[in-house]
Simulated scan of single mutants.
Amino acid sequence: MLGPIIRILVVEADRASAKSVADALNDKGFVVDTAWSIEAARDAVSVAPYDAILTERVLPDGDGLDWVREQRRAGRTAPILIATAERGAVRHRVEGLDAGADDYIQKPIPMDELVARLRAVLRRPSATLGPVLRAGNLEFDPALREVRIAGRPTRMPRRETCILEMLIRRAGKTVTKGILEEGLYSFEDEVSSNAIEVGVYRLRGHLQGAGATARIRTVRGIGYVLESEDATPIRIPSAVMLAAKVAAALSSRDGATFPALSPGAASLPQPEAHVAALAAALALSMTQLN
């Protein structure tokens, strides 16, 4: 099964080199943002969630290793790979790993190896990524990057899977279109005005076709919310409520008076009026039998 889209931040002082790495990772299916300084990297992580970060050490405004320590102190747990052109000794690599990096690699690095290393650090235990997320009979396993409906693995394109992950992580809460766009596209991507609507429409088709009990509700002008069937409030028709009041009054041994009808009850829709009248007649006949 294709996994969801993975968003990477590349922090590289040389803009041409950063673009080359970003283009290569884009070709592999990653969404990539670039930053050319520690300050720009700080801005990026403050507005977008990243699945992994690739940074070099020598940056215009400081040592990338200090920024790694800063990220770990701030509680950010995204895997970080440090890339350096220095022919460093073992102590440099140890220093990088002790600072909180997940990998320390020597530049230049073949792109296939870089992709493999990224995928390796992204294969983290479920305890780190969190438990399986559920909404109704729909499940998303962050560790396996797998969608299951009624226990059966379900295939869907990466973009729709990414939308699903963002919705199910906030199940029951409204997710704005802006948040969905941030998770799907890099800052440089050109996004069509209806891209999110199309993605949600296709995701709905996958969920309904596979028999998911969770539903995506549109919050007009704001975004979307994933709701499970068991969390959807049950609407009791007004005819049923009226019939229940009639039945309670007519079957009362204390001779309770007929319940007053509210203005709304006097103008029930035609089908509900018929139901209420039938229920009242049935209740009356039952009291007469007693």
Rank of each mutant, 00 (worst) to 15 (best):
E12M: 06
Y104Q: 00
I5A: 13
P110K: 05
I179N: 12
I196N: 10
G255A: 02
P49N: 06
L114K: 04
G64A: 01
G199I: 05
R57L: 14
H92D: 14
D103W: 02
E95Q: 06
R215A: 06
V275S: 12
S46R: 14
L25W: 01
R15N: 13
A13P: 15
R159W: 09
A231L: 05
R215H: 10
A85N: 09
L164G: 11
A244V: 13
Y50R: 07
S17H: 13
K28R: 14
R73W: 04
V275T: 14
R124P: 03
A78W: 08
L167Y: 02
L167D: 05
S192D: 14
E181S: 13
G75M: 05
A247C: 03
A239G: 08
I236F: 03
G221V: 06
A18Y: 11
L138V: 07
I196D: 09
A231N: 08
L81D: 07
L144N: 12
I105F: 06
R215L: 04
M166D: 07
A135R: 00
F258A: 13
R7N: 10
A281E: 13
P271D: 02
P233Q: 00
V225Q: 04
L118F: 03
E12D: 10
T77R: 15
V45H: 05
G183P: 15
I149H: 01
V200Y: 10
C162I: 09
R73N: 06
S192E: 13
R76T: 06
P271W: 01
E113A: 13
V175C: 10
T174M: 11
A280K: 03
G205N: 10
A22E: 00
Y201C: 12
A249C: 06
R235H: 10
A281N: 09
T77M: 12
V175L: 12
L118H: 03
E160V: 09
D33E: 03
S228I: 00
S37Q: 05
S252P: 13
I163F: 07
I109H: 06
R148F: 02
P269V: 06
P271L: 00
D112Q: 13
M286F: 08
E95V: 03
L81K: 09
R170V: 08
L184P: 09
P125E: 02
R235L: 14
L138Q: 03
L97E: 00
F258Y: 11
D51N: 04
R215I: 01
R215S: 07
G130E: 03
D51A: 09
N194D: 15
A266D: 14
M111Y: 06
P110V: 02
L164A: 10
S238D: 14
G151F: 03
K173V: 12
G178M: 05
P79G: 01
S17I: 07
I236R: 01
V132K: 02
L65H: 03
W67A: 00
E146S: 11
A120L: 07
I163A: 14
L9W: 04
T161L: 12
A171I: 04
D98C: 09
A18Q: 11
A52Y: 09
V132E: 05
